[in-house]
Amino acid sequence: MNKHFFSDMGVMLGRSMRHIFRSLDTIITVTIMPIAFMLLFVYVFGGAIQTGTDNYVNYLLPGILLIAIASGIAYTAYRLFMDMQRGIFERFHSMPIARSIVLWGHVLTSLVSNAISVVVIILVALIMGFRSPAGVLSWLAVAGILALFTLALTWIAAIAGLSATSVDGAGAFSYPIIFLPFISSAFVPTRSMPPVVRAFAENQPVTSIVEAIRALLSNQPVGNELWVALAWCVGITLVAYLFAMKVYKKRV
C-alpha cells in the first residue's frame, strides 16, 4: 500500500459523490422512494397493521432504512459496471496509483452515500413522529450495524458490477435484497404469517438486523439478535469480499 492510498481514495470518493449528486434518478431511488414507502405504510396501511406498539413509525423505521440501503447499493453496482465499460478505468489502471483504488473508492462512496440517505430518512421519520429514548452508545451501535450491513451488500454489489454483462444485469441482483425486508418482521410481526413464510422470515438476516436495531432504538434489551445480526453481516461481508476480489483480479 503506498503513501497516497487514502488521498487517492478521497479523489475517487469525490468523483463518485459528484456522480450521485448529479443523478436525479439516484437521489429519487435512494431517498425519495424509501420515504414514500414510509408514508404509505404509516398513513395508508399502518392503521390495519397490529404490531403491539402505539408508534408504527418507530416500528417500521429500521426496515425502511434497510430498504434504502438495498436500493442504494444497486447504484454502486451500476457505477462500478459503467466504469469498467469505459476507457476511464483503463486510464486509472495505467496511472501510478494503487490498482485497487478504483474498487475501494466505490466501496467508500457506497458507505458515505448510504449514510447520507439514512440520515435524511431518519430526519423525515422524526417529522412523522419517530421518537427514540436511545442514548449515544445505542445510536453508535445502530450506526455500526447499518454500516456493516451496507458493507456486506456493497461487496455483493461489487461482484454484480464486476461480472455483469449489461447495465440491467448489474442492478438486477438488488431486487431480491430490496424484497427481503417485506418477508421479515420489518413491517408486520412474523407471528401473523403462515408457518412456511414465518420460518423463512424468522431465519433470514433482515429479521435479526431489524430486531436488533429496533431494540437498540427503543432501549429494550437486545439479547441474541445483535450477535445473530452481526454474524450475518460479517459473514456475508467476508464471503462477498473474497469473491469480489477474485472477480476483480480476473478483470484487471
Partner: peptide
C-alpha cells in the same frame, strides 16, 4: 494512455 475509447468522465 489515451485509449481507443475516450477515457473521460462524462458526468
Amino acid at each position: 494512455l489515451t485509449g481507443q475509447f475516450a477515457a473521460v468522465d462524462e458526468i
